[in-house]
Amino acid sequence: MVDTSVCLSGLTLDNPVIPCSGTFGFGYEFADLYDINILGSISVKGTTREPRYGNDTPRIAECTGGMLNAVGLQNPGVDRVVSEELPKLAAVYHKPVIANISGFSLDEYVECCEKISAAPNVGIIELNISCPNVHNGGMAFGTSADSAQAVTAAVRKVTDKPLYVKLSPNVTDITEIAKACEAAGADGLSLINTLLGMRIDVKRRKPVLANTTGGFSGPAIFPVAVRMVWQVYNAVKVPIIGMGGIRTARDVIEMMLAGASAVQVGSENLVNPFACKEIIEALPIEMEKLNIAKLSDITGGAHHG
């Protein structure tokens, strides 16, 4: 029997597979498809202080090996997430979840974090400073070391729960931002968010997305994500949740060898709603093939020797 369990800041997960925020709703709707309690954890839909409709449609575009989205943080606002969505999830999913929060000002991040930290089924706060689809917020906080440090420090003061900062790949040097977050008290890092991209409808001669640009995700970005996890692993001591284009158990193992302690699966949930289940079922088989007895042992394994 192989051991698939991993540890994130004192929280033991049965396996490292976590559906990514924004690709799994608030989780409970997937409970109709399979027993979601097999999931290591769930990173729930990005939450802001106020309810948000998001961007105009079209919000989705396709490309070779992936897709672009410009949803723009649609969510019912933190009060309803805490009073309705998280309890609904707690009724069908009995493990701690990851609460993903966003904002447009320091105050908003702080208030959102304070409120959501009080929810009993929240095990980790994931501070999203990397959403490319909103203006004057989201990614604006994650593209300079100073602002990343400031928002991490501000949120750190109002929560006792493990704080993971979700980093943007749309920067010159991701390790600078990673180090700034670690210095400001982050317990861990999540990376990568989507890459800023764009498609043009050649018949209409106009951008496909109403928002013009969107976040590029899917298997095509996997090598970028592996490279950035590798770099950040070398730069910080805190654990990393690796994500970006993961679609198989082999991808999970590769991401962990690059330096991830756990992983998130994003876009693949949208084309295969059973993706996480299939990956979790395939993991022990792949581990045996690759002579891995204890999965947590391989984190950063490609860096040694």
Partner: peptide, 27 residues
Amino acid sequence: EERMGCGFGACMGCTCKTKQGHKRICK
């Protein structure tokens, strides 16, 4: 009709405004 990501309500890609709040065209 709307351009969809998943088609089953997970991604919020096809949301529209209605008199009863935001609805996902797919779900």
